[in-house]
Design a protein around this nucleic acid. Structure first.
Lengths: 251, 251
DNA sequence: CGTGTCAAGATTGCATACGATTTGATATTA
DNA sequence: TAATATCAAATCGTATGCAATCTTGACACG
């Protein structure tokens, strides 16, 4: 590779307006991205559904360019499969893929717990307690809301670490876990045991790192177990075929 | 939000050609993406360097469209900062950002160790041993090569878990760690202690999960420590200003 | 009746055009 | 001189067009 001397621009400081920029990012791409994201994890779009750029553009009143960018972002998040020259599809992770996501999520949540134990501010504690109440309130009544709140809880914890990388990865894996659960989970049992959440908070407040990490891992294990261990639902056609395919592939 | 009933396409199976597709993905976007990635983590492009779409397109003989897509991908990897209406810049993570990346990487590497301990096949073991030899060989002589091999080692371990999510996240964090080290590390000390690598492999073979995890975490800690603890290099202008900015922002 | 071929249609890959935004320099004014 | 207004250059945001590629279904053939 030739040294791209052309690219050696002088290092200009990108006016890092970290404090101010937070407010606005309502770019059209973001909008479409978020909308699709929601649609997917709320099961409005079934796994493997086609997502042609044209149609998305039309639906949102923009051009293919925007749709394309949103799809690209979704594909790196793992919510969309981008097949070259074929188009975009809502991801349809195999059971194994699902397990992988949960494994990583468990590890990430463990990091959150370790980092937060004994570090919560009073304000954060009251906020978490309030979220817990809301969960209880919605729990019995509104299924969809309960699921949303449960996810929110985990995300909020991640945010409290202040670790941007951790936040992004956890956000992604939570989304993907939702998708996996819509495929393999039972029709929305309350995915998160509220009591488990409470225990976790207590451990975090107590500052018992080991205990908090343990509880958190166990909690995720539970959620995963409810869905993935019991292979109630029939496997998708893809899974079945994939099984035979790999069996055959052994040369 | 109106229910996008239009989007309810019938679920078409995207011919998941998992076995075959692995070979080809020489799309132009990928090429540019990879080239820029290399250039960045090999310090050919200094942090905060401008990366205008036009210029990149010209340099690689394609249009802005390609450059744009590559930059977008790089930005989600955290190697590039994308400032709306201003353009793309090589990322210039702050010291805190750097620490965050290392924290997450440590956790991810721990997952790798836990999952691999006692699970390595004989073929994998010999491969790892061979890599170790190569590292020793290059170690004293070629700095750049040594760094590359060290990264390779960690990536290869991740790949052996077979966990796609873990692989992706670790790939990303390794890249970002490289970038951080180019900013805050001393001019390329051999970033990975080869002996530490050897110990890790032994623990993995022995199947001692706790020991392997411990060694791995310690190893990453070492690498991070070599760079981040000792704030030898002066902080970047951004860091300094950010410090004063937050001091002032306290209203 | 199963299979191979091929053309039409659908959809993406990529390039290009044009308006919008930002920036920095220059001119203007108190 | 210092502050401000104005303008031109650079660069991005977005839409759109055309060629390349893939899919599908019809049709001929064995």
């Amino acid at each position: 590779m030739p040294k791209p001397t052309d690219l050696h621009a002088k290092a200009a400081q990108p006016k890092s307006r970290k404090p101010s920029q937070a407010a606005k990012t309502p770019t059209r791409t973001e909008k479409v991205h978020e909308a699709l994201r929601q649609a997917i994890i709320e099961q409005q779009l079934p796994p493997s559904a086609r997502l042609p750029e044209d149609m998305i553009g039309e639906t949102f009143g923009t051009s293919r360019t925007i749709a394309r960018e949103a799809l690209l972002r979704l594909s790196v998040e793992g919510l969309v499969d981008l097949v070259p020259n074929r188009g975009a599809f809502v991801a349809n992770p195999s059971l194994d893929d699902g397990r992988d996501v949960f494994v990583v999520r468990r590890g990430l949540e463990r990091m959150v717990a370790l980092q937060l134990a004994g570090q919560l501010t009073p304000a954060q504690i009251t906020e978490l307690r309030r979220m817990l109440e809301q969960e209880e309130l919605a729990g019995a009544r509104d299924e969809r809301e309960a699921v949303r709140l449960a996810g929110e809880f985990h995300l909020r914890l991640a945010e409290m670490t202040g670790n941007k990388v951790l936040i992004r990865y956890l956000t992604e894996t939570v989304s993907r876990c939702s998708l996996v659960l819509t495929i393999y989970g039972r029709p929305h049992s309350v995915d998160c045991g509220i009591d488990e959440h409470r225990q976790i908070i207590e451990a975090l407040i107590a500052g018992d790192k080991a205990q908090a990490a343990e509880l958190m891992e166990h909690h995720i294990e539970q959620v995963a177990g409810r869905a993935l261990l019991e292979t109630r639902k029939p496997l998708s056609v893809q899974d079945v075929l994939a099984f035979y395919a790999t069996a055959i592939a052994r040369d």
